[in-house]
Design a protein around this nucleic acid. Structure first.
Lengths: 331, 331
DNA sequence: TTGTAAGCGTTATCAA
DNA sequence: TTGATAACGCTTACAA
């Protein structure tokens, strides 16, 4: 049986509404009373019951984060950052690794004030009544969503990568990533590649595109092995951190040195890029920016639900590391 | 304003207590009434309010998982597994990436039925009143804890690794890991190394121990680089997945081939070992076993809190992959 | 400045 | 088989 405000009231000789006020630091209670109440509270080891609190206040100062693909490690740093920002705003954050609909159902039950969704692959289809009843923000890809999305300008990210490689003198570029039609985020990247190549007046050969058909490192590994055996590009762009891990494995097995024999730029601008066997030059929105924008947007959405907040496109940046080299030096 | 059982009651023309019973599939309501209630409930888009539910039932069928070090990827697979098992038992699971005391406070507020802690590094010091009021299970290291712990026989794990390397003909073994005194889990591993070496009649030279003084890949990288430059072991045991990542980087830079020039066995028996540039032979408790034991233990603890459940030591296993090779073949 | 009492959405007990 | 009603722990008018 845990301690309630009534216990504190009895113990400190005041009414329990006074205790409530004291605990909430209301200016309506005398400092001495407040002090006494606070003391007995901590003496008794009181912890508030959110269930009761949320029930009456209809607020929980908690946001829920849906993150079914925890094994996709590109996002861990982002999650930590978001947690920090949310904490600074005096909110709690709870995570669920369940699928979006189940997770949101649970979060709603817990009366969370808002939900963030980290989509992976296909877009989450939610019942229309869900996102009308609770602020939802998705880190996904713009589409015909009914809820706001923080999105990355994926095309531009790939443009950046292509341009950088061309500046380094490369003309024989390949792209490796997931081209499964359902996944807009991934197809955007691929389209960005085609576009950038066309803009530069370069042709994309059929066998210079590697379709990983998935997002795990192993998908990347298989596709890279296949691609690097059949064509000999001097530069390669990879669609994600995990895929890059596979690319590195494949390159190693084929005795292709990076960047000496092959320049690589990976999508995903995250710190982990520096921990790979070869530090990978990468493109993407820096996670600090992403985290800030996401938290700010969701909190605005929570505080004034009427504010129309549309899809927001974040600008990617190029992070130079050690995997892309000028072609001249290869000669 | 969301839908409550009172709305359903009004709409379907019964009392709200009947609605409650119908929703909970009580045998006390006539099937037709039940049907009607259920229909109007889904028509209205009803979702139960856990806050209210938990308030009266004092149960939430939810367990909280404290996981501050989400960037330590060795645990992602374990978390997924645990979530699956917990779901199968009709529980929810929520995660927090906050520090243990904050997270537990929050979880208690949400009335979770039990808490799992994934410790990292130093042991979490909790106020004694915390673990007396809620079932807590920790995946940590046995010590003078007041709450039960699922622990791994770390010493034995390292023994296994040493024995395997000796069987392969190695006599010049090194260990690389965190030897910071505060972290029992890590020091156990190191002690296991000393023990196993002594048992085998082999001496441990001072410079064949690499102290990473931390658990990140970079700590491993620095320590490995230092160690491999000053001594030339034929085999190396690494204290964790992340440290191994650093070891691989260091080896590569020093042009040391694995396993040709150096056999490596890593602690942590997880699937990710297979995704490294060299698939690492590893030792540790298979995560399926770990997950099962943890979930079973916590649920028992929740269902009968009086059951004395002590620290449980799980048995590690050796998982053969490609990083340890017979010394004969080196010659 | 403090206390009384209503009410948040449920479940559970008891009476009808 | 159904319906009142108390209770869960808390916040918040409103009264004292």
């Amino acid at each position: 049986m845990s301690v309630t405000i009534k216990d504190i009231a009895r113990e400190s000789g005041v009414s329990y509404s006074t205790v409530s006020k004291a605990l909430n630091n209301s200016p309506l209670v005398k400092p001495e009373t407040k002090k006494k109440v606070l003391e007995t509270a901590s003496m008794l080891g009181y912890t508030p019951n959110f269930a009761a609190k949320n029930l009456v206040s209809k607020k929980s100062r908690t946001i829920g984060l849906v993150w079914p693909a925890i094994d996709r490690i590109a996002l861990t740093a982002l999650v930590s950052k978001i947690n920090g920002l949310v904490t600074a705003e005096n909110y709690f954050m709870i995570l669920s690794v369940d699928e979006a609909d189940k997770a949101i159902g649970m979060f709603k039950g817990f009366q969370v004030d808002g939900v963030m969704i980290f989509e992976e692959g296909r877009e989450t289809m939610l019942h229309s009544d869900v996102f009308s009843s609770i602020p939802i923000l998705s880190y996904g890809v713009s589409g015909d969503h009914v809820y706001p999305i923080i999105d990355v300008n994926h095309k531009k990210a790939i443009h950046l990568a292509v341009r950088h490689l061309i500046e380094l003198g490369h003309t024989s570029l390949s792209y490796i990533g997931d081209a499964t039609p359902g996944d807009k985020r991934q197809t955007e990247k691929l389209n960005g590649f085609y576009e950038a190549m066309e803009n530069a007046g370069l042709t994309v050969h059929e066998n210079s595109i590697g379709n990983t058909k998935g997002l795990s490192w192993y998908d990347g590994y298989l596709a890279a092995k296949n691609l690097l055996k059949t064509s000999k590009p001097t530069a390669l762009i990879s669609g994600s951190y995990d895929i890059s891990v596979g690319v590195l494995r494949a390159a190693k097995e084929l005795k292709i040195r990076i960047p000496e024999d092959l320049s690589v730029i990976s999508y995903d601008n995250i710190p982990q890029m520096a921990s790979l066997e070869t530090e990978l030059t990468s493109v993407g929105v820096p996670i600090e920016q992403l985290a800030k924008k996401m938290v700010a947007s969701l909190l605005t959405l929570i505080e004034k639900p009427d504010s129309i907040s549309l899809t927001q496109l974040m600008e990617p940046k190029l992070a130079l590391r050690k995997s892309a080299k000028s072609l001249q030096k290869h000669l």
